[in-house]
Simulated scan of single mutants.
Amino acid sequence: MGIEYKTTQRKMYVRKESIDIMCQRIRSLRDLQRHREDGRKERGERFVVAAGGTADGFIEGLPLLPAKNTSGDYHGEMNGEMFLRWLTTQLLPLLEEPSVLVMDNAPYHSIMTEENRCPTTATWISDLIEWLQRRNISFPQHATRPELLYILCRQNRPEPEYKADNTIREWGHEIVRLPPAHPELNAIEEV
């Protein structure tokens, strides 16, 4: 999750965040502060995937999706397609004013758009080459797969763009994504 621990001179273990996680946390906190100063209400704190809440309580009119699994959590029962369907047919139509939705990094919240999907270690070399060519990124003719993946693709990785974020903005709302590894910023995590 991007967290490391280091030992101090007193032999204590302290949490050491990577710079990118630090920057994500700072960006999220600044976004939340800016929206609060503008008088915008935060919506979408995750109480249950199929519910939305505000400082005034739950948003009325949202049907609850009953969980099939009686033990554990509901995460295994939700996927990106189901979440987007719930978002566009249930939550977003009920939001009357431009709102700010605060979202964590659950996998079904974070389905990337095809345009911004970066190759992974499972990507075939032919697909790596195609990805680079589509973006007009030059590469050595006899580059190996690790060179293509780690040197070229990682250096030219686009900023993440998520389907849910685009959908929320299309409906006229804003989104704040909480940084990974910071459950203290998400009220439901304390429950």
Rank of each mutant, 00 (worst) to 15 (best):
A51D: 10
A51K: 13
G52H: 04
G52W: 02
G53M: 15
G53E: 12
G53N: 11
G53C: 15
T54A: 09
A55F: 08
A55S: 13
A55R: 14
D56S: 14
F58N: 06
I59W: 02
I59S: 05
I59E: 05
E60D: 14
G61L: 07
G61K: 05
G61D: 06
G61V: 05
G61F: 03
G61I: 09
L62G: 04
P63N: 11
L64Q: 11
L65D: 14
L65S: 14
P66L: 06
A67G: 07
A67W: 05
A67H: 12
A67N: 09
A67E: 11
K68A: 11
K68L: 13
N69V: 13
N69T: 15
N69G: 12
T70F: 15
T70P: 12
T70C: 13
S71M: 08
G72W: 00
D73N: 15
D73A: 07
D73I: 06
Y74F: 15
Y74D: 11
H75R: 02
G76I: 03
G76F: 02
G76P: 05
G76T: 04
G76M: 05
E77V: 07
E77M: 01
E77Y: 03
M78H: 01
M78K: 03
N79L: 08
N79I: 04
N79Q: 09
G80L: 00
G80I: 06
G80W: 03
G80S: 06
E81Y: 05
E81Q: 09
M82I: 06
M82Y: 11
M82R: 09
M82C: 07
F83E: 01
R85C: 10
R85T: 10
R85E: 11
W86A: 00
W86Q: 00
W86S: 00
L87R: 00
L87P: 04
T88E: 05
T88L: 03
T88P: 01
T88H: 01
T89E: 12
T89D: 14
T89L: 13
T89A: 10
T89C: 10
Q90N: 13
Q90C: 09
Q90L: 02
